[in-house]
Design a protein around this nucleic acid. Structure first.
Lengths: 274, 274
DNA sequence: GGCTATTTATCACAATGCGATAAATTCTAT
DNA sequence: ATAGAATTTATCGCATTGTGATAAATAGCC
């Protein structure tokens, strides 16, 4: 009946821990923080509201953990719990973080007036995006009066390889590095027009590097037409991209290039730190 | 600045925990989560980047804690640390949370088409706001082509008492409740035109309740003119407000009411669950 | 109505996060 | 340059905090 003693009960007078630092994997990591974010990210278009057990199963935590983190997040104001249905949903307070980001971003500070100007001048949708791994994130957006697309909003992510801003940014990276990112992507044809083969993308990168801008026509959605130029820091490394998004029904490929290429390049250049 | 005492140095061999359940204050609260958010909110317009000791002093944590949480948040991708300067800044990944909120919000789902319609019809800036305590939060925003104000963005907070959407929402609450919120606010005159006395605000609430809309003219910023109507749930409780924001230079008070009051009311009514 | 599936509350335990401290590094001033 | 201050990084023993199992309470469902 004696405990099998797999449990070295903490005392451990002898047998010093071979690797003390490697606790689980990282001594300085506070795992509760990751779990909290895991709970919050369980909500989305599919799961608008979740009850406790759904939170548990969605996040892969046991009920106790789900209980603790939903409770914590509710008290902090990021979750709301319906007293009747006992279901949780995200609150508008979750917008705080992004708000802090926008307010603290020197890039956005600099970029805003130029983006506004470009928006007024072209009357087309203008976006500012940055890269996070293999994806781009929309960080600022001025909608065209005509095309009101509520599908893409601030915070939206898309694969870099099939978007004009993505290619524009990658084109200013050493080719090795850019191709590594592309090869780490989940390459696939979102539409018949998607460029998704590694070789073809390499060619696209070189062309974009040579021209100073990148284009994407119906590569993600049918009907979209986009042209982008990279914003670089003082080392010449890409930190963002400006793009103009319009539709194939309004302009041909040639027209988009002719009308907008020098505008996006000029805007991106103005925003780049000299 | 630092608390002189409060340091009972953990020894405490005797002294069994008198009250086991009431740990610090709440047994289910995971305090690390709050600390993580505290670190993230330390960044903003004032503090675009922070080094480790600044994080510590800004958040009131000791250096060790600051170290652990900046490390954790960096590994999770919400902070970026500049290798040269050793300074931290928020990353675009902080937009994820808000993105999840927008995508999971049934209110926004319902409201979007109506807001778009209102935006096109009026060509003015259209906002959707919700209330959080004494404040309102902008959750959706369609900018007028003319007036591009980059000061107010999604996630921006303002006191409820001096905004049209705030008064509109409060006007659909029992007067007791509304006045309690107003009295909990930090009432002050942001401009000469601000209505900030409790009595005057009570009167404003009653008028808004009677008319079905609320207005605010230069109550926060000089030159702004706003009119709002409340969106209610199936219990008749206010859950949001639609408003049209324009400028006093374009329309007089009377004109704003005449042109827009029935439009915002109709839009708010359409969005309200019937 | 009894049954099942949740949610809420409680608790003993030890692993996890804590915070003090030391080592390494970077910055500053002379 | 070089000492000295300030900040960052690394380490570690310990108690606290979070853990996860379980039980009680509540809500759903035939």
């Amino acid at each position: 009946m004696t405990m099998p003693e797999t449990r070295q009960n903490g005392r451990k007078s002898a047998a010093p821990p071979a690797d003390r630092p490697g606790r689980k994997d990282d001594a300085l990591m506070v795992n509760s923080v990751e779990k909290a974010f895991r709970v919050l990210s369980a909500f989305g278009r599919q799961h608008q509201t979740l009850n406790l057990s759904q939170v548990a199963s969605e996040t892969g935590m046991d009920v106790s953990a789900a209980q603790r983190f939903t409770h914590t997040l509710t008290r902090l104001g990021y979750l709301h719990k319906d007293a009747q249905t006992k279901r949780f949903e995200l609150t508008a307070k979750t917008l705080d973080l992004g708000y802090h980001f926008v307010r603290s971003s020197r890039l956005l500070d600099r970029a805003m007036p130029y983006l506004m100007h470009l928006s007024k001048e072209t009357e087309e949708t203008v976006n500012l995006t940055v890269r996070d791994g293999t994806e781009i994130i929309f960080v600022s957006r001025f909608l065209s009066r005509h095309v009101l697309n509520t599908d893409v909003i601030i915070g939206t992510r898309m694969p870099a390889y099939c978007t004009a801003p993505g290619i524009a940014m990658l084109s200013r990276l050493p080719e090795e590095e850019a191709m590594a990112i592309i090869d780490a992507s989940d390459l696939k044809a979102h539409t018949p027009a998607t460029t998704w083969q590694s070789d073809a993308l390499r060619e696209k990168l070189r062309q974009a590097a040579a021209q100073g801008y990148a284009t994407a026509f119906e590569e993600v959605y049918i009907g979209d037409a986009s042209i982008a130029a990279p914003i670089v820091d003082h080392h010449g490394r890409p930190e963002a991209a400006v793009n103009i998004a319009t539709s194939t029904s309004r302009f041909s490929h040639a027209e988009v290039v002719q009308r907008f290429s020098s505008l996006v390049i000029a805007t991106a250049h103005a925003i780049s730190r000299v």
